[in-house]
């Protein structure tokens, strides 16, 4: 194992173009899917969390179900939607990074929505009453509620990023694991392990762990600063 790790480091330092290409595609995909999911999920979750309305229970149950959506099912749905005979087939997005981002957004958005609804619902009643007393508009109140939930939202965004970067089933289905195009760290690790190329797989595993550590460190530092 130590040998593999040593070799993995030398591979990383040597600037292997395929390895760095995979890292680049992985980061691109994870970044864009997290950003898009954050823009969709956090405001939606905040609105659901702050308001009491008929059918809220049903919406929360659906969101919670989607939070546990198996990645291959999400991948399959996106695959069928983007395939040539599917409703968005004309866009010709299948087996591209864009398709992988769409699949990730389908997976991560419910997670962000559900968690932000839960985070905002704790602060919402008191904040709403105060905002109403000061005659603030609804938009200003929602923005303020989102700002007040910043620490929780940072954790939610990082959790979403963690899910995106570690996911394998959906991206493999809609991306096709094409070398130099849609191959990401998780799909490459699977492929190289099957091929017996452990050196390459371990190198990718180390990078994945390193990114995960950096992401967690950012979350920890952000949390400490707010104390």
């Amino acid at each position: 194992m130590t040998e593999y790790i040593k070799e993995a480091f030398s591979l990383l330092i040597s600037g292997n173009s395929e390895l760095w290409g995979i890292i680049k595609v992985t980061l691109q995909m994870s970044f864009f899917s997290t950003v898009i999911s954050s823009f969709l999920g956090l405001p939606l979750g905040t609105v659901i969390g702050r308001t009491e309305f008929k059918g809220k229970g049903l919406i929360l149950r659906i969101t919670n179900t989607l939070m546990g959506l198996p990645p291959v099912v999400a991948g399959l749905v996106v695959f069928l939607t983007l395939s040539r005979s599917g409703p968005l087939g004309s866009l010709q997005l299948l087996f591209s990074v864009a398709a992988m981002v769409i699949a990730q957004v389908v997976l991560i958005t419910p997670l962000m929505t559900g968690m932000s609804a839960s985070a905002s619902s704790e602060k919402a009643p008191k904040l709403r009453e105060t905002a109403s007393g000061l005659r603030m508009g609804k938009t200003k109140e929602i923005i303020l509620l989102m700002l007040e939930c910043r620490p929780q939202f940072v954790s939610i965004i990082l959790l979403g990023f963690g899910r995106a970067i570690a996911e394998v089933g959906a991206v493999s289905l809609v991306g096709g694991n094409i070398q130099f195009k849609t191959r990401v760290m998780t799909t490459a690790i699977m492929l190289e392990t099957n091929k017996g190329n452990f050196r390459f797989a371990v190198a990718l595993g180390i990078v994945l762990l390193a990114i995960s550590f950096i992401v967690n460190s950012i979350a920890y530092t952000a949390g400490e600063k707010r104390k």
Binding site: K126, E129, T130, A131, G133, R135, L144, L147, E148
Partner: peptide, 14 residues
């Protein structure tokens, strides 16, 4: 025209 209501336990923004 202009009114304000101060609840018993108002919210303090961070």
């Amino acid at each position: 025209e202009k009114m304000a209501y101060l609840p018993q336990d108002p919210y303090i923004f961070s």
